[in-house]
Design a protein around this nucleic acid. Structure first.
Lengths: 244, 244
DNA sequence: CGTTGACTTGAACGATATCAAACAGGGTGG
DNA sequence: CCACCCTGTTTGATATCGTTCAAGTCAACG
């Protein structure tokens, strides 16, 4: 079920050394954390934490994208969070996972067994502080999405999501670096996952893509490749009610 | 603009002494916090923190209900959080407020000046830990609402909100204590505010109330008084697609 | 008693869902 | 290499839920 453990962990060459919670630690502290770290790899579609199950471990995402989902009894699904490299995965001090966490792409995780990690976190003031700040950022993001889900139209929702993904992909120097106006990247999500994020159906998402394409705002390269042709127009589309 | 300061603060008789973050502190620590505390009172509709403005203070809600809102450029509004007595208001270590916080009812707040509070939080390990746990709870709540906003029908949304309010009112022993099946309380929110929470219009909210009423699930006593006649049916209505 | 503000109800409209079919790319076996 | 599927996506036609616009009710208040 889990990925492959690996003990050749070199934090000083780690690509997320500074962006992640580890950025809050000095070398001695890093060493202490590293002593309990294990790398795991998850393939697309693999479950990382099952909903309502006990957390076995926490982890930092080294590469790949993870989705956090919630599901109603009748199967309706909602993505409640997307996590990218350097994000922390899991809820310290909580017994059970409030969501289902699943690898969207291939994911490399630097994991820490729950009990061991919590003990270290109690000691290292900087670590828990950093986790606190992370959690506030996640809360801000979740509340921002409440606004999107509750009040934006389908067109605005799609534009907003594309901007969010572009921003996160860019931050990591992933693929091409953005010129201010134009940017190309691979969408990590399928149309179904985009729909599950935005509270829409696949068909509506597809129609909004087509609309943005025919307006010359974006360009589709195959089904996953995306080029933002007019960043300004995309930003405008993310907040202005459709006027066809 | 602000409420009235007051220096007769007796933590040992405080009604939220244990439910709030103060529950994590011993007497000496409480004393230290109390030394910088000021009571403030806000009237319904008064702003507590303005969106994007600097935080001046943080606070614990002693009584009343506070709404946190976000607004789009064209005026569309979404409530992204409701806070009840014992909840902590504000984001430590953040310069600017990511939301507009406003008193819904009359609100009594026990406040701490931002800089002073943060200095104390750095010292008192238990305090920051408790705030961390609070923030995770808020995050859970926000993600739960993402599911509601993205995937539930109007009827389910209204039922879900009534249940959430009933639960929070009950926890405080506010008004009548609930029998398992029946419960009465005053809605703190107007129809417009309920609509702003659920991403609906006033009219739709009103229609859903009428539907629940004629189904015998709830009973309206005036415009604010609410009696839940059939808790089981309300719970069912919060997760099952309308079948008229 | 008229005015006001919050709520309810009704009718028509429109955005998004639903149902259905066509389409495209990538793999497989012949 | 091609016919075939398989899955994900796009497109079209229709239905539905929630919005919008417009009255109408009710209680509080001057």
């Amino acid at each position: 079920m889990h990925g492959l453990p690996d003990k050749l962990l070199r934090c000083d060459t780690c690509s997320i050394r500074h962006g992640s919670m580890c950025g809050a630690l000095n070398n001695a502290e890093i060493e202490r954390l590293n002593a309990i770290a294990h790398h795991k790899v998850f393939q697309p579609g693999q479950t990382i934490h099952a909903d309502k199950q006990q957390f076995q471990f926490f982890g930092n995402i080294i590469s790949g994208v993870v989705k956090l989902t919630k599901t109603l009894a009748d199967g309706r699904e909602q993505i409640v969070g997307l996590q990218f490299p350097s994000d922390f995965l899991g809820r310290p001090y909580r017994a059970h996972s409030p969501f289902h966490a699943e690898a969207v792409t291939k994911v490399q995780l630097c994991t820490y067994e729950k009990g061991q990690f919590e003990r270290i976190a109690q000691d290292l003031k900087g670590l828990e502080h950093r986790l606190f700040e992370n959690t506030m950022d996640e809360l801000d993001a979740a509340q921002e999405w409440m606004l999107v889900l509750g009040r934006k139209s389908a067109g605005e929702k799609v534009a907003t999501l594309l901007l969010m993904i572009a921003r996160r992909m860019d931050m990591l120097g992933c693929k091409h670096v953005s010129s201010p106006r134009e940017q190309r990247f691979e969408l990590p999500l399928t149309r179904a996952e985009i729909a599950d994020f935005l509270g829409l159906t696949i068909e509506t998402v597809s129609r909004q893509f087509s609309k943005l394409k025919s307006a010359g705002v974006i360009c589709l390269d195959g089904t996953r490749g995306l080029i933002i042709r007019d960043m300004g127009a995309l930003i405008a589309a993310s907040e202005i009610r459709d006027e066809d």
